[in-house]
Computed example of a mutant assay.
Amino acid sequence: MMQAGALAEAAGAPEHLVAAALLHDVGHFHGSVTGQELMAGKDNRHSDTGAAWLAQWFPAEVTEPIRLHVAAKRYLCAVEPAYVAALSEASVYTLSVQGGPMTPDQASAFAALPHARAAVAVRRWDDAAKDPDAPTPGFDHFRPLLARLLRS
């Protein structure tokens, strides 16, 4: 998650997208179903769980890309044939658990959503954030950014 946030920041993304990239998988840690269960074949709906929990503190411009980042993977698999080939083995497996590639109608509906482009950006940073040796700042680096985005 921190690597995805760092990649978004390095890309010059707006603060709300850096926050979304940083927090996109928090639903794996909050809720009754874990990421381990996802890998065991049970969809934990972590994007929905995480976005709903974060909505207590953050606006939709942060939480909606989080809520849609799994759908963005399904979308990209439907509209970019080369995308599937670039996914990690774990992502290919979770794609099947999460519903597989979208149908053309689903892809059109997704693309029309207000936060679809932001979700696709978060998804791409998530996909790129797989290097265990990449220099990544700690969470404290992102605290000021998150504090600026908190709803009052």
Rank of each mutant, 00 (worst) to 15 (best):
A10D: 07
H115R: 09
A4Y: 07
M102P: 11
P104A: 09
A112W: 09
G35A: 05
A6S: 15
P14N: 10
R74T: 00
A52M: 05
L23T: 01
A78G: 12
E61I: 13
P59K: 01
A85F: 02
D25Y: 12
G12A: 08
F142L: 05
A40Y: 02
V92W: 06
W125R: 04
D43Y: 04
L38K: 10
D25R: 11
Y83M: 08
L17F: 08
L38G: 10
R124E: 07
Y75C: 09
S152Y: 09
P135Q: 12
Q56D: 12
W57V: 13
S88A: 11
A121V: 13
T103G: 07
P101G: 14
A21S: 15
L22D: 02
E61T: 14
W125I: 00
S96H: 15
C77E: 06
L23R: 02
H115Q: 15
G41K: 04
R151E: 08
A112V: 06
V70D: 15
A60T: 10
L95Y: 07
W57S: 14
L95W: 02
L54V: 07
V84P: 06
P81S: 00
H46V: 09
H30M: 14
I66D: 00
L7H: 04
A72L: 08
G100R: 00
R123G: 10
G138Y: 05
E64G: 10
K73V: 15
L54I: 00
E61C: 13
L146E: 05
V120A: 04
P137S: 05
A11C: 11
Y75A: 01
E61R: 14
D43N: 13
A78L: 11
L22T: 03
A86Y: 01
L23P: 02
D131G: 11
D140K: 10
L145M: 15
L95P: 04
D131C: 07
S32Q: 14
R117S: 11
D43I: 01
D105H: 11
L145D: 14
V92E: 15
G99I: 00
P65S: 00
W125V: 03
T34E: 00
R67V: 05
A20P: 02
A107I: 07
P59G: 03
W125E: 01
R148A: 03
A19R: 04
P14F: 08
W57C: 14
R151Q: 13
L149K: 06
P137R: 12
P104S: 06
P137I: 08
V79I: 03
